[in-house]
Design a protein around this nucleic acid. Structure first.
Length: 262
DNA sequence: ATGGTTGTATAACAA
């Protein structure tokens, strides 16, 4: 029996509730990581997910950001803060231990613009994450780092690498920052299973017909340590929800594992 | 050209 994990930036969980619930019931992942829920914990529509058979853990804030993990099994542990002594005001991190696997779900800052303090905050967020991994985990344990990383790692991961070179989301500094965090011990599961495939997870609302024209970016990632990558069966992007009415600007990424071989 | 749309809010801000 395979074990399935998915990540989905929903861009407002209340606005996206019909799509997310419908998708969950069809795909039945064991774990679904959400980003940009855009609500406080008390406003999270937990009941519908409970009815669908999922346990809900949320780190929310008013209006912006916010992450959640839905899981078929109740997590043995839940972590909602870095706990590194630095300010942790934005709801961008939640981690759970489920069925022996640590799952770290992040909504990495978008960065806004190169000359905006948010861009430096984004770079620092990756460095902080790397230190956090170093202090709490080892690359030899089964660990997943997933979510909206807001970085397209390679040229193949954006629709026009020449035009977008240096833009936020594809700037060399943030590609390096992401790569250095991942170099702690993570493998990009989609790229392992689909080398050379141009496949996006985000299509900007502001570009006319961006999804239909496939003018997208691969910003959402499932990163796994070596033991988990070794038992991964598949990793794919499900573009179906992006084509629905009133979609998120992102679409889910899914991975499948044979945990019995761990 | 520095545009465009969407969600949370209920005027702007963030993405």
């Amino acid at each position: 029996m395979s074990w399935k994990l998915a990540t989905f930036n929903v861009n407002g969980v209340r606005a996206r509730l019909p799509i997310v619930i419908d998708w969950l019931k069809q795909r039945r992942p064991d774990v679904l990581c959400l980003q940009e829920i855009k609500c406080q914990e008390n406003d999270f529509p937990a009941e519908q997910f409970l009815e669908a058979g999922y346990v809900v853990n949320v780190r929310g804030q008013k209006s912006f950001n916010g992450v959640a993990v839905l899981s078929g099994e109740r997590p043995e542990r839940v972590v909602r803060e870095f706990g590194d002594g630095l300010p942790d005001e934005e709801a961008r991190l939640i981690a759970v231990l489920v069925e022996g696997v640590w799952i770290v779900n992040t909504y990495v800052p978008q960065g806004r613009a190169l000359d905006d303090p948010a861009f430096r905050y984004k770079l620092d967020f990756f460095a902080r994450l790397r230190r956090w991994f170093e202090s709490r985990f080892t690359p030899g344990q089964p660990l997943i780092w997933t979510g909206d990383m807001n970085v397209a790692p390679q040229e193949i991961d954006v629709f026009d690498p020449k035009r977008l070179d240096g833009e936020v989301g594809f700037h060399p500094a943030e590609r390096t920052a992401f790569a250095e965090a991942a170099a702690w011990g993570f493998i990009d599961l989609f790229r392992v299973h689909h080398p050379g495939q141009k496949q996006f997870t985000f299509w900007d609302y502001r570009l006319p017909k961006s999804f239909q024209r496939n003018l997208g970016w691969r910003l959402d990632h499932i990163m796994a340590t070596e033991p988990l990558a070794a038992v991964s069966i598949q990793c794919l992007v499900d573009t179906e929800p992006r084509g629905r009415p009133k979609p998120s600007d992102h679409t889910p990424v899914c991975a499948e594992f044979d945990l019995e071989k761990l």
